[in-house]
Amino acid sequence: KKYKIKVYVKDKKTKKWKKIKEIEVDTKEEALEAIKKLPPNYEVKIVP
C-alpha cells in the first residue's frame, strides 16, 4: 500500500494554495518522516 504526500505552498500574490510536489512512500512512518523535513510554511496532505 502506497501513500502519496501532496505538498502545497501558499502563493503570496494570489493567496491560493498551489501544489508544488508529490512524494510517494510505502509506509505511514515514512510519510511522517518526510513531512518533518519540509519547511513549516508548507501545507501537506497524506493520501492513502
Results as ranks from 00 to 15, higher is better:
1 K>T: 14
1 K>Y: 15
2 K>A: 09
2 K>C: 08
2 K>T: 12
2 K>V: 10
3 Y>T: 02
3 Y>D: 01
3 Y>A: 01
4 K>E: 03
4 K>L: 12
4 K>A: 07
4 K>G: 02
5 I>M: 06
5 I>L: 11
5 I>V: 12
5 I>P: 00
6 K>W: 10
6 K>C: 07
6 K>A: 09
6 K>S: 13
7 V>N: 00
7 V>G: 00
7 V>R: 00
8 Y>T: 00
8 Y>K: 00
9 V>A: 13
10 K>C: 10
10 K>D: 01
10 K>Y: 11
10 K>R: 14
10 K>V: 10
11 D>T: 05
11 D>C: 05
11 D>R: 04
12 K>S: 09
12 K>E: 15
12 K>Q: 13
12 K>N: 13
13 K>M: 08
13 K>N: 11
13 K>Q: 11
13 K>E: 13
13 K>R: 15
14 T>R: 08
14 T>D: 06
14 T>F: 04
14 T>N: 08
15 K>C: 06
15 K>S: 13
16 K>H: 06
17 W>R: 03
17 W>E: 01
18 K>E: 05
19 K>G: 02
19 K>W: 10
19 K>E: 08
19 K>P: 04
19 K>H: 05
20 I>R: 04
20 I>F: 08
22 E>V: 12
23 I>Y: 12
25 V>P: 00
25 V>A: 08
25 V>Y: 14
25 V>N: 00
26 D>N: 15
26 D>V: 10
26 D>Q: 08
27 T>I: 02
27 T>E: 03
27 T>M: 02
27 T>V: 02
28 K>C: 09
28 K>S: 07
29 E>P: 04
30 E>R: 03
30 E>G: 06
30 E>W: 01
30 E>N: 04
32 L>C: 15
32 L>V: 12
32 L>P: 00
33 E>M: 07
34 A>E: 14
34 A>G: 02
34 A>N: 05
34 A>W: 11
35 I>L: 07
35 I>P: 00
36 K>L: 11
37 K>G: 10
37 K>F: 07
37 K>R: 15
37 K>D: 13
38 L>T: 01
38 L>K: 02
38 L>W: 12
39 P>L: 07
39 P>N: 11
39 P>D: 12
40 P>V: 10
40 P>M: 05
40 P>Y: 07
40 P>I: 08
40 P>D: 09
41 N>V: 10
41 N>L: 09
41 N>T: 15
42 Y>L: 08
43 E>F: 13
43 E>V: 15
43 E>K: 15
44 V>T: 08
44 V>S: 06
44 V>L: 05
45 K>G: 05
45 K>A: 09
45 K>I: 10
46 I>C: 11
47 V>W: 10
47 V>G: 06
47 V>I: 13
47 V>H: 10
47 V>Y: 15
47 V>E: 11
47 V>A: 05
47 V>C: 06
48 P>I: 15
